[in-house]
């Protein structure tokens, strides 16, 4: 469908898709950047966010309240997971870390299946998100437009935490030089716990606010996970701005290539990722040291 209105629509859709990927990926990337752990349970965090929000919505009936309760739930899950399990893997080889998070991912998914069953659950958009918005020839679901704003705000909050708070300074310093942070005598334990929690919460938050778009199923995080990998690699592992840039690029690739041949759009993502890595091995905004 190559036509100007469609091109503009897809360009815009790429932006919407991209910001969501950016938000989920930023969680993955700050966890990896700070803790050095590639969290394969990140997709499960996204899924659990959705279910926590769904449960909260059943009781409160308020979308905003569900978002808050759901996010905090995933933050808590993240913190507890770090405390009980991930912590013991910092001095283990990377493959052990990858595997334990892979295992945790399975456990989380199957626990949710045990509790909620496999039937898809629905969260409807809040009343202020119903309907379609027409902007000239461009039309778009109202909720998704609002989602764009919500995600932009969430990313801004993450930016603030990372760049304007003491915790953020430590996290960023840790991404650049973990040994140095250690030597400064900062309580790295607490920082790691919080970073894992915040990273998980970013995915969980994305899961809830995206619930009105995507039906909730226990397996919903699986497909997202591989896409966020691609985002993180394109942007540069460990780089927050990189996750945002990578997210936007990935969103646009998925959207724009679908106009030519939709069947190939997901593969194009992998092709672009490989190209980026060949030309700029550390990713677009990645630090050279982290390769």
């Amino acid at each position: 469908m190559l036509s100007w209105p469609n091109f503009v629509s897809q360009l815009f859709n790429g932006l919407a898709l991209g910001t969501l990927l950016a938000l989920i990926s930023s969680g993955l990337t700050i966890i990896y950047g700070t803790l050095g752990v590639l969290n394969l349970a990140h997709g499960a965090m996204f899924m659990m966010g959705g279910y926590a929000g769904f449960l909260a919505f059943q009781y409160t009936g308020s979308f905003v309240l569900s978002v808050i309760i759901g996010s905090l739930t995933v933050l808590l899950i993240g913190v507890v997971t770090e405390r009980l399990i991930i912590r013991h893997f910092y001095d283990r080889p990377p493959e052990d870390q990858v595997l334990v998070t892979f295992g945790l991912g399975i456990v989380f998914v199957e626990l949710v299946r045990l509790g909620f069953g496999s039937l898809a659950r629905q969260v409807n958009p809040p009343s202020w998100g119903a309907g379609v918005v027409h902007l000239g020839f461009l039309f778009y679901p109202a909720y998704r437009l609002e989602l764009l704003v919500i995600i932009a705000l969430a990313l801004a909050v993450l930016y603030y935490i990372l760049y304007r708070t003491q915790l953020g300074m430590i996290v960023r310093a840790g991404i650049e030089d973990a040994v140095m942070v250690d030597m400064l005598g900062i309580n790295i334990d607490k920082v790691f716990m919080l970073v894992f929690g915040i990273g998980a919460m970013a995915a969980g938050f994305a899961g809830i606010i995206n619930a009105p778009v995507l039906a909730l199923t226990p397996d919903m995080g699986d497909d997202i996970l591989i896409e966020t990998f691609v985002v993180v690699v394109i942007g540069g592992v460990g780089s927050f701005p990189g996750a945002i840039l990578g997210g936007l690029i990935s969103g646009e690739i998925l959207s724009l290539t679908s106009m030519v041949n939709p069947a190939y759009s997901q593969v194009m993502l992998f092709v672009v990722m490989t190209l980026v890595l060949m030309l700029r091995p550390q990713g677009l905004l990645g630090a050279k040291s982290r390769t």
């Binding site: 990896y32 590639l38 990377p94 990858v98 591989i226 990998f229 691609v230 993180v232 690699v233 592992v237 593969v267 992998f270 092709v271 990722m273 490989t274 890595l277 060949m278 091995p281 390769t291």
Partner: peptide
């Protein structure tokens, strides 16, 4: 030749992407 240009987690991720392709 493509994937071995990188090591560690990058190498792992490139192999995932190529296998998915």
């Amino acid at each position: 030749l493509i994937s071995l240009r990188r090591t560690g987690i990058y190498f792992a991720m490139i192999t995932v992407a190529i296998a998915e392709t």
